[in-house]
Write a protein that binds this DNA or RNA. Structure first.
Lengths: 153, 153
DNA sequence: GAATATGGTCAACTAGATTGACCAATAGCC
DNA sequence: GGCTATTGGTCAATCTAGTTGACCATATTC
């Protein structure tokens, strides 16, 4: 059975998140990039294609108003560029601006570093297992989708 | 090498956390316990011995003022009981009040359920691996200790 | 026993979210 | 076609969970 005095699973997740986010942003800052944690999630999710404001709201798990504000700030700070959606005149696509591109590449670099450091402790195989297991569990418990990022606190 | 288009590790952690916290609190609420996520972490950490206000601050990763406020609210809502520390007249020990005891037991029950559900997807062995791998990585990257719980956002 | 550090609280403030009202454009439907 | 409902986005006001800063009482150090 599960030992009830173990560290709770949610706490492990929380600490893992905290640890990764802190390390990422420490190293981003050393490269002169002072982005807030939430920026990095948005940039990383914009790799394949530009997101809409609503995509951001869903991704992060907050209201579209809050997502709209965030997009505005990130545009003002030159991470994003709001441009009209070619197919839908209501929507806007959040393209990566030059600084956003740079921050994204830096974040990707740093993730490679961080994952290497994790692999040094538990090994490459176990790290990949961790990744794929989490993916599997999350999709299984959320009808094939991924849940929002922001923790309910 | 690491596929750069994969879901970022921090995002997996964030979603895992979110998923567990949401599920826990949904089920706590169904049992008539309307606690905030942060309460559960404090209660679970109080299992072995009562914490001080400063312990709570360290555990969660915020200021002692904020921890003090939290303790006050949790006392007012009958989850905790602030009592003088027998060895140190400055400090207070946060004992579990009756409702806190109940909430703690409920949370433990629900964690058993949730972990069983995760195990259904990835298996018991992999779940234990996940737990021990996270533990190992966190301790290794934090000088043997565990980092705070609250994500920097 | 003086100086410093630690545990805790009070008060004022702030950042980052929320709710609610609203407009413009699209989609569904008869 | 044209009416209605839905969707994408923003503005404004508000709320809340945290912060910073000042402070007191007790412990610790030398």
């Amino acid at each position: 059975m599960t030992d009830p005095t173990q560290v709770p699973l949610a706490r492990l997740m929380a600490m893992g998140l905290r640890s990764l986010v802190d390390a990422l942003h420490e190293r981003l800052e050393r490269r002169g990039l002072e982005v807030k944690p939430v920026y990095a999630f948005v940039l990383l999710a914009s790799r394949e294609r530009p997101l809409t404001v609503n995509d951001v709201a869903e991704l992060l798990g907050f209201t579209k108003q809050a997502a709209s504000k965030l997009a505005e700030v990130m545009e003002r700070e030159d991470y994003l560029l709001r441009r009209p959606h070619p197919q839908d005149a209501r929507a806007k696509l959040l393209h990566l601006a030059p600084r956003g591109q740079r921050a994204l590449r830096a974040a990707e670099d740093i993730y490679v570093e961080l994952e290497a450091e994790w692999a040094e402790v538990i090994g490459k195989r176990r790290l990949e297992a961790l990744r794929s297991d989490l993916n599997a569990v999350l999709r299984a418990t959320h009808g094939g989708n991924l849940p929002p990022i922001r923790p309910t606190w």
